[in-house]
Design a protein around this nucleic acid. Structure first.
Ligand SMILES: [Mn+2]
Ligand SMILES: [Mn+2]
Ligand SMILES: [Zn+2]
Ligand SMILES: [Zn+2]
Lengths: 149, 149
DNA sequence: ATATAAATGCAATAGTATTGCATTTATGAT
DNA sequence: ATCATAAATGCAATACTATTGCATTTATAT
């Protein structure tokens, strides 16, 4: 198991407390939903699942505040849609530390957070990189099994 | 000069011929505009510059066909908006070969194509990567000069 | 229990991108 | 040079993603 496993001990209420956020049922539901799967989930998917319980705008606001606070990190896919995954515990309001590689399956479109850190890359003279984002595109574990059948 | 320099010998009509595309004034204008600068240009910027001469929809269609044909490559920025740059000469309809690193300035938002190739990264068991996209975020050459003044 | 600030829901609006169809244009054949 | 044809364009409509303003509801501290 090389890709990041889901944190089974995720406790939405506690996360909200730690970041001094009011714990509303909407905020708790979003965290519950995202914690369900090990792969990142897109805003459209979240809206499909939660749209009956939570207003679109509220969902956007919750996702934004979770990103700001370092609770979730956002991964853009090839189509420019936002995907979200739980941050590593070291992320804070000031700075994210999610410098792992992502894998975007071109078959099922799922985005995996891999336990692979990016090697240091030397920037040209004058360019100062603060963060790097790397996404690999290809066929994921599950899809390659399906194809081979 | 570490970042990729603009190809001064760019000839829109010839590029269209090479890809057996009809050479319309709209298609030529798009190539001319993108060839003007060494940094990638976003769809909104292109629309601002060409919106009077070219219909929005036509612009989208031209950008899509240029990407399909391997004439341009598309780089998504943090906000999910498309940016375009001329492809290396080895790109074709079947496959892009633009595996260089991009630099997205968080100050001026410009996206640079760097002459930096991505080191090979080992994927976890079961995951097969066909392509990799890497973007560094930070302060670019020009902006760091400005800040230091 | 109550006051207060914050979060939510709803309507409106903005930004990005695609589809359908009538009209125009580029290109090859005559 | 003219014409026929398929392709490209422009325009209207539509879809999808995201944000803003404001009235109402809710969480939390007192
Ligand atoms: Mn991740
Ligand atoms: Mn590039
Ligand atoms: Zn897959
Ligand atoms: Zn800059």
């Amino acid at each position: 198991m090389q890709n990041q496993s889901n944190n089974m001990t995720i406790d939405p209420v506690n996360i909200l407390k730690e970041h001094s956020l009011k714990h509303t049922k909407q905020r708790i539901r979003v965290l519950e939903e995202i914690a369900l799967d090990t792969v990142a989930i897109s805003q459209p998917e979240l809206e499909k699942k939660l749209g009956k319980e939570i207003d679109r705008v509220t969902l956007y606001r919750i996702l934004n505040i979770y990103e700001d606070k370092g609770i979730l990190h956002r991964i853009m896919d090839m189509n420019g849609t936002a995907n979200y995954a739980i941050c590593s515990s070291s992320c804070s309001e000031d700075h994210h530390h999610d410098e792992h590689v992502h894998f975007n399956c071109t078959n099922c479109t799922k985005i995996y957070c891999l336990d692979v850190v990016l090697p240091q890359i030397k920037m040209p003279q004058g360019f100062t990189a603060a963060t790097m984002h790397t996404t690999a595109y290809g066929i994921c574990e599950k899809c390659s099994v399906m194809v081979s059948k």
